[in-house]
């Protein structure tokens, strides 16, 4: 599905009247940044599960999702930076949206580093969950940054309420790319969490009986 979205977007969607072919990076950039935020939100829900109901799986899912979140945030930042050259004439701008996304990337690294620095994994799980819950404050800031401040970054072109300022010939491949990347990341998440659960539970009887 991701390949379909990208092929449609990169080869068959029409050129943009102002940006020419350079706009085509949206088929990578937009899905990446959407999932950079969604993955963090998912991690925050898992962290609450772990802290409130002591569900171990919550912590395992955070630990598995964090590297994927970091990777996709990095791709979002990098693709945005590459897009910045033809559109803004600069690789980087200390604009509210870009800076808050960079902060999100640092948050992902912080979560991974925090977990990695404790040898007692149960302790690491709890501390990591606390940090994830507190860090969720950054998500609405990223989302609303383009509305709250006058930024170089454009406001959202698609809204959940249904409105879109993108022509359907570009919108459909974009939506397919978003859904496709979503499925790809879910698959990656399942694979990553499966191997992490095996690592953490390797001494448990259910592993030796079933695997």
């Amino acid at each position: 599905m991701l390949m379909l979205g990208w092929t449609w977007g990169l080869l068959f969607a029409p050129q943009d009247a102002v940006q020419g072919n350079s706009y085509r990076i949206i088929f990578l950039h937009v899905p990446s940044v959407i999932f950079a935020e969604l993955i963090y939100f998912f991690m925050a829900v898992c962290a609450l599960m772990h802290l409130v109901w002591r569900v171990k799986l919550g912590a395992y899912l955070i630990k598995s999702a964090a590297p994927i979140g970091a990777m996709i945030t990095f791709i979002g930042l990098l693709s945005g930076s590459i897009w910045g050259i033809p559109t803004w004439g600069t690789w980087w701008q200390w604009d509210a949206r870009i800076t808050s996304t960079l902060i999100l990337f640092i948050m992902y690294l912080g979560i991974l580093t925090l977990h990695g620095s404790f040898s007692n994994l149960e302790k690491a799980d709890r501390l990591m969950s606390i940090l994830v819950v507190i860090g969720v404050v950054n998500i609405p800031i990223i989302k609303k940054s383009v509305d709250w401040w006058s930024t170089l970054h454009q406001p959202a072109s698609i809204s959940v309420s249904g409105g879109s300022s993108i022509d359907p010939s570009m919108l459909y491949p974009l939506l397919i790319s978003v859904i496709g990347l979503g499925f790809t990341l879910i698959s990656l998440g399942i694979l990553s969490s499966r191997s992490y659960i095996f690592i953490r539970e390797k001494n448990k009887r259910w592993i030796s009986e079933n695997v």
Binding site: T99, G110, T113, L114, N138, I141
Partner: peptide, 19 residues
């Protein structure tokens, strides 16, 4: 969070929240 694990970890965990 970092307690005795060094300043770097403290920065990584709390600086984003200072935004």
């Amino acid at each position: 969070l970092s307690i005795n694990k060094g300043a770097m970890l403290g920065v990584l965990s709390s600086l984003p929240l200072a935004l």
